[in-house]
């Protein structure tokens, strides 16, 4: 009888822990599909391209980010390969001159300022350091967005407890600060905020 009573607090603890560790993350994030599937691997392996071939800098050193449809169209003016996605890209975006509404995994909020030039060009940090093996992947993984903050899940990292994360995972301020502390760079808030 008494032993049975002990089960109530235990069950409560279990329910609490499950709610916090399993249910909460599942509810917190909304999963969205990319408008098109895109294979980085095809471009980097077969196409032999480097990251900077598409994700380049403009004349003032500003990182351009995801290439525009016009940039893609310099190769894909017409369908080159056989995939359904490429066909759709050419039909729906190149021919109509629209931009693809990509969902950006690494998108930081407006108040964060991240100069790619300082990190990549001057700092010599490889793209993989922060973006992981993105460039060798064959598909675009589903994009997860935090229902409260609207942030991409990549900013927090896939692990809700932030344990056992890969080195490239997590783009919270703490993650930036850790590296900056180690390398003794940039001390002021406004260095990374705008």
């Amino acid at each position: 009888m008494n032993r049975f009573r002990v089960l109530f607090p235990l069950a409560g603890l279990l329910v609490g822990l499950t709610a916090g560790w399993v249910l909460f993350p599942a509810l917190l994030y909304r999963t969205e599909e990319q408008p098109l599937q895109f294979s980085h691997a095809v471009h980097t392996d077969t196409g032999g391209m480097a990251c900077a071939d598409c994700h380049s800098f403009d004349a003032d050193g500003r990182f351009v980010g995801i290439p525009t449809t016009a940039q893609c169209a310099s190769c894909h003016a017409d369908v080159m390969g056989e995939t359904e996605n490429e066909k759709r890209f050419v039909e729906e975006y190149v021919k109509t001159n629209r931009e693809v509404p990509w969902k950006v995994y690494a998108r930081q909020p407006d108040n964060a300022y991240f100069p790619h030039a300082a990190h990549v060009t001057r700092g010599g940090i490889a793209c993989e350091r922060c973006h992981g093996p993105h460039g060798t992947m064959n598909t675009l993984r589903p994009y997860q967005v935090n229902r409260i903050t609207g942030y991409s899940r990549d900013i927090w990292g896939s692990s809700i407890g932030r344990v056992g994360m890969e080195p490239w995972e997590g783009m919270k301020m703490d993650d930036c600060v850790r590296c900056h502390r180690e390398t003794e760079r940039a001390r002021a808030c406004l260095d990374c905020h705008k």
């Binding site: 109530f8 409560g12 603890l13 609490g16 822990l17 709610a19 916090g20 993350p25 809700i160």
Partner: peptide, 12 residues
């Protein structure tokens, strides 16, 4: 009480 404790010891 235990459920609350469980939640407190979770990221929620």
């Amino acid at each position: 009480g235990a459920a609350t404790a469980g939640i407190v010891f979770s990221p929620l």
